[in-house]
Each structure stands twice: as C-alpha cells, then as structure tokens.
Nucleic acid binder design. Structure first.
Length: 501
RNA sequence: GGGCCGUUAGCUCAACGGGUAGAGCUCCGGACUUUUAAUCCGGCGGAGCGGGUUCGAGUCCUGCACGGCCUACCA
C-alpha cells in the first residue's frame, strides 16, 4: 500500500515495507517484535564448544538450551526448516519442524526474515547429515530486522558500505570480525606486558592548551566556559614525562591522538598510540622493551611471530638488528665518507642526484634524514631498529652520550613502515628550553608543525627528572601488520569519512 | 591541494561500435520432514544527482556528490 503513496518506490523501499508489515502484524497479534527480558542459557559458541566431537548423526543429547543469534540463512523443506543463527563468529543450525512446533509457531518461523535476531529453546541434537543443531521447541523473535542485509555468500565488498556501515561489515564479513579480535588481543597483550613490568596505566588530558610532543598540525576546539581555544592532543608525551617527574617511574598510556593532516591508506586523523616512560632506562633498554611488547602482541593476537604480510613474510621473532641511520644512508648513496660534518651544499647535491627534494633552509641533519626516508625506510622489511637520529629533527630526545650530532633515538621499521619511535629522553631543562626555542623560531617562520615552548613542561623538568627512556607505538599500524591488511581503515572501526549525502 | 579511475537491482557481478539492460543470491507466490550456496516451478525489481550533444545516451561531453589509487603533506 505504501507503494502507491510514494509513487515510485525502489526495490529497497518495497523490501522494508514488507518487513514493517510483518512487524505490524505481530503487534496486532500481541507479539512485541522488540521484546525485553529474554534470557539465554548458552552463547552459540558455548554450545559448539560443549558438543564438538559429541553426538552421532541423528542423535539427540537430551540437553535443553536456550540460545540467541541473528538469522543468516534459511533452508526450507516444507514441514521442516533449517535456520542458521549467527552470534559473533559462531554459526549454529536450528531445526524447526512442524511436528515439534505445531502449525502456529511454524507459521511464525516462516515469517522470519534474514537479519532478524531470534531466540531458540530446544534440545541439542546432531542432524542426520551430522550438523550440530538445536531442535527448536520454541522460537522467539528477539529483534525484527527491517532492512535487508547483503547476502552472506558474496558478502559486502563495497568499501564505502564497509566503512560507513560497519555493523553490516561485521555482520556479514568474517574478516572484519577477525581484525577486531586481533586488535583487541594485541592491545590486551601490550597492557599485560606493561603490567608484568610494573608499569602503571594512566590517562592524560585530551584537550591541551597547546599541542606538543610531536610535530603535527592540531585540531582546534573551543571551551565556552573558559572562552578558550583548546587543541586536541597530537601526542601523549609531555604529560607522561611530567608524571615521571612526579615520581611515577613507570607509566604508560593507550590513547587516541589527533592530527589535522592528510588522509591516506596509512593515515587517519584520529589514531591510537601507546606511549610509555621508564625511569633509569635508556634507548637500548627501550629497544628490548619494544621487541618484547611486539613479540608478545603477535603471539597473543595471531599465535605466531611469523607473519604473512602483503604477499610476503615478516618474522618478528629473534633479536632485531640495530642500524645507525647514517650508516644506512652511507650504504644507500654509496658514500662511505658521509657524515653530519659533510657540508650542506654537498648533501643537497647528493639529494638532487637521488631525486630527493631538499629545502634550502635545511641543515645537514635534516638532509640526511630526508635521504634516509626517501631512499632507505621503505626498503627495510624485517624488523629493524634504526638508531641515532640527528639532533635538529629530534627536539625531545637526549643528545647521544658520545656523538653530539645525533640523539639517542630509534625508530622501529617493519615492512617499510614506522611502527615505533623512542628515545633516551631529554631531561636537561636548559637544553630542552633551547631546543623548544629553536622550534618556536621555526614556528614563527611559518612552520605550522613546529613545537611551541611549553612552560608547564619545562617547569616540571626544572624540578628535576630521573633519566628515562620513552616509547611510542602506532597501534593501528601494528594491527595492520598483525592482521595483514593494507589500509588503516580496515583496523579503525569507524574511520573518518566525508558525510554521506 | 594535484592527477587518474570508479559509481548498473537490497548484495555480488555482466553485457554492447550510441538503438527496449542480463545473471546468481536476496525478495514475493507455489512444491518439498535432514538441508547446509538445499533443490524444483513461477514472478517482482535497476543506470549516483544535474546539465548538454543526438532522431535516440547507462554508453559521448560537462558540472556536482561520494569513494578508490597515486602524488603532495605527514615523527
């Protein structure tokens, strides 16, 4: 009837109208299509676990269960109907027989639609063909589905649907559920490893009065009560270091950070980082920590350190090599004599020879880093700690104990991508102030990503900090590696998209 | 920000040099008491939005929207 009202309804509208009509008919019969107070005795997964390997084909268990799930398949045989319920990753068959249910209940089973949430109470049996099933004694509609789901055979491939309507993706695509579980297990493993090492989990502020701790453009928002512009955090670093100054000698935080920059298969404006700080540790200790964290995350999330990735293999097992950044650039450019004392003009010429863009304002450190990023980083496949980054590009890292040109900093590269960034932290307040002031000058010169001088942070440092090592891990990229997916949008449940129209 | 590409039924995909758009699944009607992509018979349903060229446009041109890839940017 709404067909005439809307004039030219789409097929989808017709399908929805049919389902609404069924819901209406149920209400008219005194049945709530959205009931409450339903209890189940077993998750579907529990039924499978308890009866896997038990019961002969055609045998009944005598045990009664009450289960729930989404109806994802139906095979009708007239007086016998096979239903398949899905709950999470588990599917379980239901036998609905006219003999057992009677004509009235059987008619309501016939009226169920794929996508409906359904409760079934009955005996656990094995069908004649050997499929573990529940022989339905009662069938209850738990939640009427008004909108047809994509068919379970083909799934949903359209990426826009998958990202915008993640509920559909999860309901239909087992791989989407797999990634969610890997993510959860990896994060749980990181927490467990930190807990085992005596770290305390903390939560810093998300709203900052100035954005610091990384080089990135922030999002700006406004606090009405304070009539104050605030910035969404771009890193966790500065507040965590203040906590160490306060005597919290081992702290970590897992949290969302926000960077107002471009989107790409590897960048989402909001993403998840874990950062940790450990008093008395240096970057060598943090490399050991990083290796332990990621190896544990791999084992607990996917069961092995030998990962399939992007058509190849990546093994996170064993000891990971530690390679000075300058050595890597020397090798890549075939210039063994290269150093941070090499004149900038010569480095610029070298960059030009390798088609690497070089800004005239850059000094030797930045030029060497640029050469590394363009020539070397993407070539590092197995886990590699790249160590000793130039001072001028590392404003929060301590100078190297024996080389004034570089800092005690490393990045972990796996499969050509940065997974972690860490250093022996700078704890000298005067050195820190000088570095931040250099950043502030760059900022005044138009560099929107340069840091500002954070007086609260400097004051904390002036009270005195223990020596410490700090670590930041990109959780999304870690999950991409573990789950073998190529876009960050596959590991973030609701990635940033333009609004649909 | 720039370049290239995509958008066909609820889902997954076709076709054609510009000439009435096909299939499978889903859905609707029917048969069927052990199927599991059940099967069998019958049926409904479609070109992202807007302009233009043309006798005629899903197809050619163009604007817009959304998306993808590359690039730029990016600790």
């Amino acid at each position: 009837m709404p067909v005439a009202e809307t004039g030219d309804p789409s097929r989808l509208d017709e399908l929805i109208d049919e389902r609404r009509a069924k819901a209406r008919a149920l209400r008219d019969a005194g049945i709530d299509p959205y009931p409450v107070g339903v209890r189940v005795t077993h998750a579907l997964e529990q039924v499978r676990r308890e009866y896997d390997g038990r019961l002969e084909p055609g045998e009944g268990s005598g045990a009664q269960v009450s289960v729930g799930g989404r109806l994802v398949a139906r095979r009708g045989h007239g007086k016998l109907v096979f239903l398949v319920l899905r709950e999470g990753d588990t599917d379980l068959q239901v036998l609905a027989a006219l003999d057992t249910l009677g004509p009235e209940a059987m008619a309501r089973v016939e009226d169920l639609d794929l996508g409906d949430w359904v409760g079934v109470a009955g005996e656990v049996v094995r069908s004649r063909r050997g499929e573990l099933s529940v022989q339905a004694g009662t069938v209850t509609l738990l939640g009427k589905s008004l909108r047809p789901l994509p068919d379970t055979w083909h799934g949903v491939r359209d990426v826009e649907t998958r990202f915008r309507q993640r509920e559909v993706d999860l309901a239909i695509n087992a791989d989407a559920r797999r990634v969610v579980r890997i993510r959860a297990a990896a994060i749980a493993a990181l927490r467990a490893e930190y807990a085992d090492r005596g770290y305390v989990e903390v939560e810093g502020p998300v709203l900052h009065t100035q954005a610091g701790g990384a080089l990135a453009k922030p999002f700006v928002t406004h606090a009405n009560a304070l009539d104050l512009d605030l910035y969404l955090r771009i890193a966790l670093e500065l507040h965590l270091k203040r906590l160490v100054a306060g005597g919290m000698t081992r702290v970590f935080e897992i949290g969302r950070v926000f960077r107002n920059e471009g989107l790409s298969p590897r960048h989402n404006p909001e993403f998840t980082m874990v950062e940790s700080y450990e008093a008395y540790a240096d970057y060598h200790d943090i490399m050991d920590l990083t290796q332990a964290l990621l190896q544990r995350a791999a084992v607990e999330a996917v069961g092995t350190t030998a990962l399939d990735h992007d058509g190849g293999k990546v093994d996170l097992g064993g000891e990971w090599p530690r390679r000075p950044l300058l050595d890597l650039v020397r090798a890549a450019t075939d210039r063994p004599g290269l150093s941070y004392d090499t004149p900038a003009e010569e480095l610029r010429a070298l960059a030009a020879a390798h088609d690497v863009h070089a800004d005239p304002a850059w000094g030797p450190g930045k030029l060497v880093l640029e050469l590394y990023e363009k020539l070397v980083e993407h070539t590092l496949w197995d886990p590699t700690f790249v160590v000793d980054y130039p001072v001028e590009v590392s404003p929060l890292a301590r100078r190297h104990r024996s080389d004034p040109h570089v800092t005690e900093r490393f990045e972990l590269i796996v499969a050509g991508r940065e997974l972690a960034n860490a250093f022996t932290e700078l704890t000298d307040p005067d050195d820190q102030r000088a570095r931040l002031e250099a950043q502030a000058r760059a900022r005044a010169g138009g560099d929107e990503e340069a840091m500002a001088v954070d007086e609260s942070f400097l004051r904390a440092m002036e009270f005195g900090m223990p020596p410490m090592g700090g670590l930041g891990i990109g959780v999304d990229r870690l999950v991409m590696l573990l789950a073998d997916v190529q876009t960050i949008r596959d590991v973030i449940l609701f990635p940033t998209l333009r609004p649909e129209r």
